[in-house]
């Protein structure tokens, strides 16, 4: 009893996290190409300053 609620619940969570992850990684790739190499990472930026 209850699988008709459990399965949609887990599916929605999987789709939400999976979809969010995919679009985030895609956006990361697209933006990386547009940002100069030395500015891409926060840590690299910080190392430059010190």
């Amino acid at each position: 009893m209850g699988w008709e609620y459990v399965i949609p619940g887990y599916l929605i969570a999987a789709v939400a996290i999976g979809g969010y992850t995919l679009q985030m990684l895609r956006r990361g790739r697209a933006l990386s190409a547009r940002v100069p190499e030395e500015r891409r990472r926060f840590l690299a930026e910080k190392a430059d300053k010190t």
Binding site: M24, L25, G28, R29, S32, E37, E38, R40, R41, A44
Partner: peptide
């Protein structure tokens, strides 16, 4: 080599 074209 230094900063890849992705966020990994």
């Amino acid at each position: 080599r230094t900063a890849p074209l992705h966020t990994g």
